[in-house]
Amino acid sequence: MNAKTETQSFSIEWDLPHAPKKVWRALTEPALLAKWLMSTDMQLALGTSFTFQAPSSPQWDGKVNCTMQEIEPQKRLRYSWAGGGLEGTVVTWTLTATSTGGTLLRLEHAGFKAGQKEARFFEGAKQGWQFMGGKRLIDVLSEMTVLSEIQSEESA
């Protein structure tokens, strides 16, 4: 495998008026994750596999397969993220305490490869994942403004 593959990532930041301890709980406790993300059997143990389960559709079983890669309580959480034809991506959450007692929450989603097949997942996702409040994709995107960036990097 000498061929260089270009991958892309993006990151988004949120300035939250809640302490890192509380944000960490919401990012790691399955009962809380089920309320804002998806139902999951996540365990805080390095190297363990777990899934997120979205509603399934004829095109996609709704499973996102993950492996826990890094755990630094109240600071950093990293796991692989694959499913429905998307492979080799990694999700990293970074929590930084702010001077006002809140948390700067940063998400990086990395490892998107050019030419990766779109597959059924994307179609399935449109049906299976209900955007909260019935928002259209374009509305959500218009709120993203400057905090999101796309980075390009070369990896061996």
């Binding site: 993006f10 988004i12 949120w14 309320k35 804002w36 993300l37 929450l105 998400l107 989603h109 996702a125 994942w129 955007f131 909260m132 928002k135 994709l137 959500v140 995107l141 709120e143 993203m144 999101s148």
Partner: peptide, 10 residues
């Protein structure tokens, strides 16, 4: 991008 923006609102 849209997925995470939406989920973090929740």
């Amino acid at each position: 991008q849209a997925f995470w923006m939406d989920k973090v609102e929740g």
